[in-house]
Design a protein around this nucleic acid. Structure first.
Lengths: 196, 196, 196, 196
DNA sequence: TATGAATGAGTTTTCATTCAT
DNA sequence: AATGAATGAAAACTCATTCAT
């Protein structure tokens, strides 16, 4: 059993904890090195800047996310179940590694100025694919035709992000029951709406 | 002769433009002074720190927002129209001063770590009041009882923020038609849902 | 009597001493600040970088030098005396402020890679004006026509620089007698040549 | 089969190109390793520091130069022809390997502070031997007695260096005709002088 | 109020050098 | 000999904040 000591990975993982704990702007590179238990310079051996670490973290994760969305879309499920699968995936991602999701959302996805700018395109891909699911659902008669698909996709993704944000802000570990509840309700609200 | 030269106001307004343009973390206090056309030190005459400027900006605006929500809630409208009024108010706020809304959302509302922390309570008030509207709507039989009111409020607010974020990221001025479209659809989606 | 405390000047003068003593590449900005007796940051208040300080020093001095050459050329002297005046000016410049001349020569004039590059044009102006003096001397029949004027100018300037370099390397203060001797001999060698 | 892969030599040659291209202070040891196509650590296997590489380069070349001067001096030539031989040797050295000469002159010979310091003695030997040639020429009645031999030697060497410096700064490859012209004129100016 | 020079701690980044393999 | 990961000291530069005028 190979006790892998991939220092690059160690640094990346340490960065997640540090970014989540103090925030990207607030932390120092030395905090990451310390947390990783490696020499200062090694961080720069593997990454060209603090930004590039965040970059890497985001890209790694977002690609998994895009793959999950694609897979959901490609499945034989109903449109509603496709959305459910996506919501489920994101919620589970948070449950598995709250720090990582916190970093992705707080420091990248929602940071319109500094960082998000760089990744707008990549981020939009996720929105767009969800919009396609909604649109196809409308074509297939599973969803109401009268709604703006793009806006609906935003509602869906906005709600998911909002839920995670609450958990992130809350600071308390989220119970298994909350996860299930959230998964179920997210779809219920978006699909069922508020009207009687 | 009301050539009011309230330098404090001038600085505040300049800060909005600077924060919106470069981001809170990226800009320097001198950028604000330059933009305002005042001496460096004057910024510190009126504000104790860079943070305090953002603080002030947020508080000023958020109180107006809370008032608007309260007013909507207090009105004789239907629950759905109350949500419509709030959506309308926020969208109009963006139309009137996109830079300010950008700053509020990007630098405060969504900055879970650094800044948002300080204002969580204040921010939550808005969410909570919206949740109350939903809840009351359910009590009154205007909204479905089966939905989690808190989650529904998050869906509503999440969608609104998501729409603004799109506009913010887009960088292009938003047409009047987009505003009206957004106002209408936001409510339609949240209330009507996607299901046929 | 205005005890001028132009901190900018103080920094510039301190830089001369530090550059002369340790060399541009070897010294730290903090050495300059210390030598000047000012806070670290003030150096950056007046100059944008360590390089820019050297830049300023060079430009200030070289312009004086070009003016001296121009003045010598404009005078009614014989070509030989014009060269003598220039040699005299440069030698006196060294006598007056050896550190400054050391910095100019060692760190700028002779540093083909890093720094000199930037100022090649400015440096060339001096060479060219001297060449013109030689050329005019040849036209006027005061100098031999058979020699390449540009090369002769290089010989003249090369010798002057070589002499200063010796003094610089020598490290010992130069006696008045050495100065006079040098002024006289420089012209004698360049004009009289070695041949019997 | 002499596919000699003397890595030490390869590193040395690569260093010449790198030093010439970026300058000693600006380049990194890794640049040299990259240029040489060897592993980072190998540079330190053969040399104890970046300085030592420059050291080696200088010493190798300067010894050849001193030998050439000695040889010229030992020959049966006239003093004037001895100087001509030396000028010729240096000019040819530049023609053969401009980068190497550039490094020697710019980074060692002219760097009074940092590097030259170490080699002052070695450098002076060249000057001194040239001065001896001049002095002997005066004794033999071939050169004018009235001139300071040391200064004359400086004039000679100063001109040669100045000519190379021009070529170095120029950056353009030098034509064969320029080489011959320079060789001829250098001696002509130093020996014949400017006077009619 | 208003100015902007002065301060100096704090952080990123660079890179020569070492060392285990 | 050869490799390149690992180390960490060193320095430039930034900028919020203070303060004398």
């Amino acid at each position: 059993m190979a006790t892998t000591t991939d220092k690059r990975r160690v640094i990346l993982d340490a960065a997640v904890r540090v970014f989540a704990g103090q925030g990207f702007h607030t932390c120092r590179v030395s905090d990451i090195a310390d947390e990783a238990g490696v020499a200062y310079g090694l961080v720069y051996h593997y990454f060209s800047s603090k930004e590039q670490i965040l970059d890497t973290l985001f890209l790694e994760r977002w690609d998994v996310m895009l793959a999950a969305i694609a897979e959901a879309d490609a499945s034989e499920r109903s449109p509603r179940d496709k959305l459910a699968a996506i919501a489920s995936f994101i919620v589970d991602s948070y449950a598995k590694d709250p720090d990582l999701m916190k970093v992705i959302i707080v420091e990248v996805t929602r940071a319109a100025n500094t960082f998000g700018r760089t990744h707008i395109e990549k981020i939009k891909q996720a929105y767009d694919r969800i919009a396609v699911i909604v649109h196809d659902g409308q074509q297939a008669g599973a969803f109401r035709a009268g709604v703006d698909a793009t806006l609906a996709a935003q509602a869906f993704y906005g709600l998911v992000e909002q839920v995670l944000t609450r958990w992130i802000f809350g600071g308390v570990p989220v119970a298994q029951a909350d996860l299930s509840h959230a998964k179920r309700e997210i779809v219920e609200i978006i699909c069922g709406g508020l009207d009687v």
